[in-house]
Write a protein that binds this DNA or RNA. Sequence first.
DNA 1: ATGTAGATGTGATATAAATCACATTTTTAT
DNA 2: ATAAAAATGTGATTTATATCACATCTACAT
Lengths: 226, 226
Amino acid sequence: MKPDCKFCKMKSPAAELLKPDEIDTLEQNCAQVKFSKGETIFREGTFATNIVYLRLGLVKIHMKGPIGEKILRLNKAPAYLGLPTTFGDRVNHYSATAITESEVCFISLDAFKNFIYSNGNFAYEIIMDLCRTELADFQRFTNLSQKQLPGRIAELLLCFSNHLFKSNAFELPLSITELANFVSASRESVSRQFSELSRLGIIELTHDKKLTILRKDMLDKISANG
Amino acid sequence: MKPDCKFCKMKSPAAELLKPDEIDTLEQNCAQVKFSKGETIFREGTFATNIVYLRLGLVKIHMKGPIGEKILRLNKAPAYLGLPTTFGDRVNHYSATAITESEVCFISLDAFKNFIYSNGNFAYEIIMDLCRTELADFQRFTNLSQKQLPGRIAELLLCFSNHLFKSNAFELPLSITELANFVSASRESVSRQFSELSRLGIIELTHDKKLTILRKDMLDKISANG
DNA sequence: ATGTAGATGTGATATAAATCACATTTTTAT
DNA sequence: ATAAAAATGTGATTTATATCACATCTACAT
């Protein structure tokens, strides 16, 4: 689909810093594509030939591990998907899959590189983006590796509630099986944790995945205690 | 100590791209400092006021977790230490501590920013550096979260041997306790794993931490099997 | 509607690894 | 040199979580 970058309301902070003629160039080197739930946006092992920008929707970033698929993080629009995998190597080291209906801009790598070369503010903003993302990842890795399961699940639910959906009630964006691989645990153990949290009246979870946090204070405590 | 950036043999790939006048600026905005084993280079929670570049030596990057200290990675010179923690926030999110005698350049943040603004090749190289580092971190994290202890230890030893020291024989750069926190396990369990690997004749480990890999093929197998 | 495949809940059991408890060794300080 | 502190090795025990086994349940295709 032909994009309209000039008047796009979902421009990245970096793209906001592009000059008019650069925006024109962007527009000519950008393809906007819709993805339905479950569709692959880019796949591990294929060539990374475009910068991928999530304009709308929710996406999971995941990679093959020794045991199976590992979800590394969720990305909510607006966000660049996989700058590291595009710049870090010729080949993608991880995959991106739409969790909800999503809109994605594929930007020519050459055009994007030229922005970095020619527009220092743009380059600086991209660097800031990479750095902030990596800090958040470190934090999550550290917590994931030191907390045990109840703490990891509590933390995940708080993250969904506080950052992703900004609400105490939301629909679980992932299946139990996916949640399990996100928090590095078995499906059965995660299922049991949810049962336990429901039994204790800390959350309410309906058959159709609508989750309500009833006692955020308790979740905070469980998350903090590991 | 007054640095001599112009003729420095340990310049980063990015700094190699600076123009002569920029190198002069770098030289005027750079302080070179030596650290002994165990000394803190920068600490989590303090203000990140400088770009930190490791010219010589070996450094651990670590952060406080819910349980205790978590080692995130080892950095061997030459490498930027903590670009993410410098650009990502005003305050350091993690610490850097010298593992061996090290030499570090502290570069003024403003000067560094100006290089990004004015020199696109420099900016691009920094972006590449950030991306490659993050890819490696993802890979390590996925392995860490899916393999069990024997696999994690085997992988770590192979990493030391293949990348860090490029030799089958080396001195363990970390104490058993530190190794344990690196691979997210208890000190006792790690100690037992080393005993077991020695018993099986896969490694030889002397009282003074000199380690020799006798059966790399076996380590590869253990690492691959998780 | 009916069947089939995939996702989920839950009890029973197995197991990896933590924890506890201590002896020993090594390092550091005085 | 000697004491104190820290790091390490190893057996016994406990514990969190994986695995196994199966019963639902849900979704989708025919």
